[in-house]
């Protein structure tokens, strides 16, 4: 029953009543209590997004700056034999390489004397751009083709699904390596597009099946009987009903794309001129036994990011799917 003050002062147009906020918060709190892992995932995702957005402010140092210190041993007359005996003789400064974590460099430095913390932070930005970008491309393109394929059926469906079969017949990593190595210089845009294309087939398949189910609903039949055209039915009636699936695919795919990019960068086929976590793992792995910091922290960042997006996506699916809601 409505309270007196609410009756006396109806909300203005566009203004959300305070009670609605409270209700939403209460619902979120209830979901958070019910799905603790999902909540952890969301907290981590928010943290990663915050780090990515704020990276220029919080990175402390330029991620490419090579820290160095004067070299008291420098001998400008040193010949190659002297340098072979003592490599420190040949330069007026020494790079601060392979520093263990300390107050100046929170996560230590890499083999080029660069701050690992700054590089992890900048890498977060790359991971988010790649994860969100590729996921967006794959979900949007998959939704459009899934919508067309599922709604029209017949020859259109047959043709589109054979193309999807063709793409899915290739092992994903092989296809990815092929795309990235055959096209041109592996830059950031190319990597995002290649990853997005790889996910297109999966998104199409899932969206098609949902569209098939929704298209058979009575409200779609009713719209058709009322004289609505295919475009109107698809975008006004079908699309809103498959939106929840789109959101779930989008959120779960982000972690997968972050992992795929790390794999590409590890193989030297990622965006070469960018600082990415995969490239850091690749660079750091050679010193894993003596100077593990770079490989360790970048590997940990990848693990956390993938875990966070998976947990969050999983929770989102549970909440958006009425059959799973409340079963956690």
């Amino acid at each position: 029953m409505a309270r007196v003050d609410e009756l006396a002062a109806p909300p203005l147009r566009g203004e959300v009543p305070l009670g609605a906020y409270r209700a939403t918060l209460r619902r979120l709190w209830s979901v958070a209590k019910r799905n603790k892992l999902g909540t952890l995932g969301f907290v981590l995702v928010i943290l990663i997004l915050a780090v990515a957005v704020l990276s220029p402010v919080i990175k402390r140092y330029d991620e490419n700056h090579q820290f160095q210190r004067p070299n008291p041993e420098f001998n400008p007359n040193a010949n190659p034999l002297d340098i072979a005996r003592n490599p420190n003789l040949g330069s007026p400064f020494i790079l601060d390489r392979w520093q263990a974590p300390n107050w100046e460099h929170w996560l230590g430095t890499d083999q080029y004397g660069r701050d690992i913390y700054a590089r992890i932070v900048v890498g977060a930005r790359m991971a988010v751009i790649i994860g969100f970008g590729a996921s967006l491309i794959s979900v949007l393109s998959g939704t459009i083709t899934g919508l067309i394929s599922g709604y029209f059926g017949g020859r259109v469906d047959f043709f589109l699904q054979r193309v999807v079969d063709g793409v899915q017949a290739f092992p994903p990593l092989v296809l990815l390596l092929l795309l990235v190595s055959v096209l041109e210089e592996p830059n950031l845009t190319l990597t995002v597009v290649a990853l997005g294309f790889l996910g297109w087939a999966y998104s199409t398949r899932v969206m098609r099946s949902v569209v098939l189910s929704v298209s058979a609903s009575t409200f779609v039949e009713a719209a058709r009987a009322a004289g609505a055209g295919p475009l109107r039915i698809m975008f006004r009636h079908v699309l809103p009903n498959v939106f929840a699936t789109m959101v779930v695919i989008f959120s779960i795919s982000i972690g997968i794309y972050i992992l795929a990019e790390a794999g590409l960068s590890f193989l030297g086929l990622g965006p070469a001129d960018q600082t990415t976590w995969g490239k850091m793992v690749n660079t750091g792995r050679n010193q894993l036994d003596s100077h593990p910091w770079e490989a360790l922290f970048s590997g940990l960042a990848i693990t956390l990011a993938v875990l966070a997006f998976n947990l969050a996506g999983d929770a989102l699916r549970d909440e958006l799917d009425p059959r799973l809601r409340g079963r956690t």
Partner: peptide, 15 residues
């Protein structure tokens, strides 16, 4: 040159 020697070869090179 000396910076690159430091970076890639840990000083173990000569200009």
């Amino acid at each position: 040159r000396r910076a690159v020697i430091q970076a890639f070869h840990q000083g173990l090179a000569q200009v």
